[in-house]
Amino acid sequence: MRLEGKTAIVTGGASGFGAGIAQKFLAEGARVMIADINHDAAQDMATQLGPNTIAQQVDVGDQVSVRAMADAAYSEYGQLDILINNAGVTHLPTPLEDVTEEDFDRVFNVNMKSVYLTARAFVPDMKARGAGAILNVASTAGLSPRPNLNWYNASKGWMITATKTMAVELAPSGVRVNAICPVAGETPLLKSFMGEDTPEIRAKFLSTIPLGRFSTPEDMANAACFLCSDEASMITGTALEVDGGRCI
């Protein structure tokens, strides 16, 4: 029960890594808002996980939508202890000059602007209380970029730098900010990362991961739980590689 009495929001919480994090946080005693652009999926997940969850539809790249999410969280919980910026998108593997402006803007809004918007919505209250934990779900792509995922790589590199600058600025206020950097996992984005999902492409991808497997929602959830718990009270500004050795 490392998160007993804590309140948390997990964006992109209806599937993949976000759903795994939500489930882990509930098991550790937290109350969790599952925020997702797909309201029906968020509601289904909240129903599945039980009474300590609520669902909220959110477009994390839209200021009005993020503000509505914050208002709903404060109305339900009174305060927010943990913010998980997990929602993310990618573009298909494409030469950098051929990525459409529409795809670029979508990656920018969901992966980058969202961190700015949620910070505006939640940091003032955390600073006023002198407590809070923010976790940004970045990627090994931000540390060891691969060709043709160019602007996705860049967005996750931005998120890692944002994590560090947020951490150093907010530390005097008692607010910790960290990131986790997963390698690709069995999530809805896997096919988009690989371009197509075939045994041959999977084998090629897995050959770059020393531990020889994809990451799982449970892997991310365990790392997230530690970094957001009081056990990590001396850790801020880190970008933890949860990648099976991919970045070595």
Rank of each mutant, 00 (worst) to 15 (best):
L3K: 00
E4Y: 15
G5F: 07
T7R: 01
T11G: 10
G13N: 06
A14D: 07
F17K: 04
I21G: 02
I21F: 01
A22Y: 00
Q23W: 02
G29Y: 10
G29M: 04
A30M: 04
R31K: 11
V32N: 03
A35Q: 01
D36L: 11
N38I: 09
H39N: 14
D40G: 07
D40H: 05
A41L: 11
Q43E: 14
Q43N: 14
Q48P: 03
Q48T: 13
P51D: 13
N52G: 04
N52E: 09
T53G: 00
Q57I: 05
V58E: 02
V60Y: 08
D62R: 02
D62V: 11
V66I: 09
A70S: 03
E76L: 12
G78A: 11
G78H: 06
Q79D: 12
L80G: 07
L80Y: 08
I82V: 14
L83P: 09
L83I: 07
L83C: 00
N85Q: 08
N85H: 08
N86L: 00
N86V: 01
V89T: 09
T90G: 00
P93V: 07
P93I: 08
T94P: 06
T94M: 07
T100L: 13
E102D: 13
D103M: 14
F104Q: 04
D105L: 02
R106C: 10
N109T: 05
N111Q: 04
M112G: 04
K113V: 03
T118V: 06
F122K: 03
V123C: 11
K127V: 13
G130A: 12
G132T: 02
L135D: 01
V137E: 02
A138R: 06
A138I: 09
S139E: 12
S139C: 06
L143H: 15
S144C: 13
P145C: 08
P147T: 08
L149T: 07
W151F: 14
W151V: 08
Y152I: 04
Y152W: 05
N153E: 05
A154R: 08
A154P: 00
S155H: 04
K156Q: 04
M159L: 15
M159S: 09
I160L: 07
A162P: 03
A162L: 10
A162H: 06
K164W: 14
K164Y: 14
M166D: 10
M166V: 11
A167N: 08
P172E: 12
S173T: 13
V175M: 02
V175N: 06
N178Y: 05
A179D: 06
I180D: 03
P182I: 03
A184T: 12
A184V: 11
E186C: 03
P188L: 06
K191R: 12
F193D: 03
E196N: 15
P199N: 13
P199W: 09
E200A: 14
K204A: 15
L206P: 01
I209P: 03
I209K: 08
R213V: 14
S215I: 11
E218W: 04
E218G: 12
A221V: 01
A223T: 05
C225F: 01
F226W: 01
S233G: 10
I235N: 13
T236Y: 00
T236G: 11
G237A: 14
L240S: 05
L240H: 02
E241H: 10
V242H: 10
V242A: 11
G244K: 11
